[in-house]
Amino acid sequence: MTDMQFIKKDILDMESLSAEDITLILDTAEKMKEISDRPIKKVPTLRGRTVVLFFYEASTRTRTSFDIAAKRLSADSISISASTSSMVKGETLIDTARNLEAMNSDVIVIRHSSSGAANMLAKCLKASVINAGDGTHAHPSQALLDIMTVREKKGSLEGLRIAIIGDVSHSRVARSNIAGFTKMGAEVVLAGPPTMMPAGIETMGASVTYHIEEAIRGADVIMMLRIQKERQKSFLFSGEREYARVYGLNRERLKHAKKDVLIMHPGPVNRGVEISPDVADGPYSVILDQVNNGVAVRMALLYLVSGGARNADSD
C-alpha cells in the first residue's frame, strides 16, 4: 500500500479533509478496488482488528458496504442496530459507545439520525470513529465514493459543473458533496424548490437556482437526491406529481446537459419521482458504479484510520 501518512483518527465530515487527504483516500481506494475483483476477495491487512457497525438509522447500502469492506480486509465486524442495542432500554448513546470501546473495538462506524452524533462519539472515545451519516449533517464516505466515481470517469474534477438537484435541506449527502466537490475544483449548482434550499447554503460554496433546466445546462454531472413523501406533511412540496413534472430528471431535460454527462443518485431511488426509470437505467447512469466504489472507499477509510501502511507492514 501507499507509504503516505494519514494521521486522522476520525472521519467525521468533508470539511475536515483537505484536497490532499481526499486524493490519498481515493488513491488508496483504487488499489483496494482490485481486491474486490479477485476470486478470493480477502486480504489479511486488518486481521485481529474489531470494527463495530453502530447503526441507529435504517440503512441497507451503507451498512452492507462497510461490512463487506471490513471483511475483505479480514477485520472482525459486528453490527448493532437501534432495535437490538441497549438504547431501547434507555441507555444513552455515549454509554453504549463507551461500553463498546471497553470491549477494545478499534473502529466504530456510526449512522445516526441526529446531526453531530459522530462528533460526540469522536470527542469521548479513543477508538476511531467513521461517520456513516449523521442527521442532515454529513456523509463523508458517500461523498468520497461519489468523488471517486467522477474522478474515474472524468479523470479529474477540476472545472467540472456538477448539479445537485432535490431536497438539499434534508440531505447530508448534498452537504458533504458540496464540500468535497468544491474542494476538488468543481463548480456546484443546486436546484430545487425554495422550500428545500436551506438558509445560507450558498456560503458552503454552491450557487442556487430554482429552475432545474438552469442547473442542468452545461452540466458534466447531475446528482439527483431522493424525495421523501413525508416531506409533504411539513409543506416542502405539493406532491409527487408536480415534483416529477417541475423538478424531476427525464430524457427531455437531459438534452440541456453535456453529451457525456454522468447521472448519479445516492439511493435509494424513487423511480418516477425525482428521476424517470429510463434515465436511471440509461447509458449516462453511474448509479451502480457508485455502489461498487463504495466498498473500495470504505476499505480505504478503515485501512487508513487503522494506521495505514505502518500497521500493515508489521502484520
Binding site: S115, G135, A199, G200, I201
Partner: peptide, 9 residues
C-alpha cells in the same frame, strides 16, 4: 442560518 445549515441542524 448558514451555521445551522452547515451543521445539519
Amino acid at each position: 442560518g448558514a451555521f445551522a445549515t452547515r451543521m445539519g441542524l
